[in-house]
Simulated assay, not measured.
Amino acid sequence: MENHILTNEFPEFESKIKALKLNDDNFKKMYVNYEEVNALIQHYEEGEVNHTTDDHLTDLRKKRVHLKDNLYTYLRQ
């Protein structure tokens, strides 16, 4: 499984991500939301017993992509 941690997704913004997490409440909120969704997806994908439906997992993945797009836009500002 791929690791979708934000600094792996955008290594060119690693220092900016660290700074924004500490100094920008809007970014921090988006970042925490992204990491929570990502952790939940990883939990479902790595578990021996999947306690969710394929539709729910697909919805979580779509939400992660949406959050990642928003974070990328924010990072490029």
Rank of each mutant, 00 (worst) to 15 (best):
Tyr74Pro: 06
Lys29Cys: 11
Glu45His: 05
Gln77Gly: 15
Leu67Ile: 12
Glu36Tyr: 00
Leu22Trp: 12
Lys63Val: 04
His56Pro: 12
Glu12Ser: 14
Tyr31Pro: 03
His4Thr: 06
Leu40Trp: 09
Glu48Lys: 06
Asn33Thr: 02
Lys18Pro: 03
Asn3Lys: 01
Lys63Glu: 09
Glu46Arg: 07
Leu67Pro: 07
Arg61Tyr: 02
Asp55Trp: 12
Leu6Tyr: 04
Asp69Ala: 15
Asn3Glu: 05
Lys28Gly: 03
Leu60Val: 09
Glu46Asp: 09
Asn3Trp: 05
Ile41Asn: 09
Leu40Phe: 02
Val37Lys: 07
Thr73Phe: 11
Glu36Asn: 10
Lys28Glu: 10
Ala19Phe: 06
Thr52Gln: 07
Asp59Cys: 14
Thr52Lys: 10
His43Ile: 05
Lys29Ser: 07
Tyr74Leu: 10
Thr73Asn: 13
Asp55Phe: 13
Asp69Cys: 14
Thr73Gln: 10
Asn33Gly: 00
Met30Lys: 08
Tyr74Asn: 01
Asn50Gln: 14
Leu57Gln: 00
Ile41Tyr: 06
Thr73Ser: 11
Asp24Ala: 12
Pro11Cys: 12
Tyr34Thr: 05
Leu71Gln: 10
Arg64Pro: 00
Pro11Asn: 12
Lys63Ala: 09
Thr7Ala: 14
Val37Tyr: 03
His4Met: 08
Phe10Lys: 08
Leu75Ile: 02
His51Ala: 13
Asp55Ile: 14
Ile5Arg: 06
Met1Cys: 09
Val65Pro: 08
Ala19Leu: 05
His4Arg: 02
Asp69Gly: 15
Asp59Ser: 15
Lys16Asn: 06
Tyr72Ser: 15
Arg64Met: 08
Lys63Gln: 10
Asp54Val: 14
Glu12Cys: 03
Thr73Cys: 13
Glu9Asp: 12
Phe13Lys: 10
Ser15Pro: 06
Lys29Pro: 07
Thr7Gln: 13
Asp55Arg: 11
Asn50Ala: 12
Phe10Arg: 10
His66Val: 12
Asp25Lys: 07
Arg61Leu: 09
Asn70Lys: 03
His66Leu: 13
Arg76Cys: 11
Gln42Gly: 07
Leu71Asp: 06
Lys63Thr: 02
Leu57Arg: 04
Met1Ile: 00
Phe13Thr: 04
Ile41Met: 04
Arg64Gly: 07
Asn38Gly: 02
Ala19Tyr: 03
Pro11Asp: 09
Tyr31Cys: 04
Arg61Ala: 04
Asn50Trp: 11
Asp55Met: 13
Lys62Gln: 15
Leu6His: 08
Ile17Lys: 09
Asn33Cys: 01
Asn38Ile: 01
Met1Gly: 11
Ala39Cys: 06
Phe27Cys: 01
Arg64Glu: 11
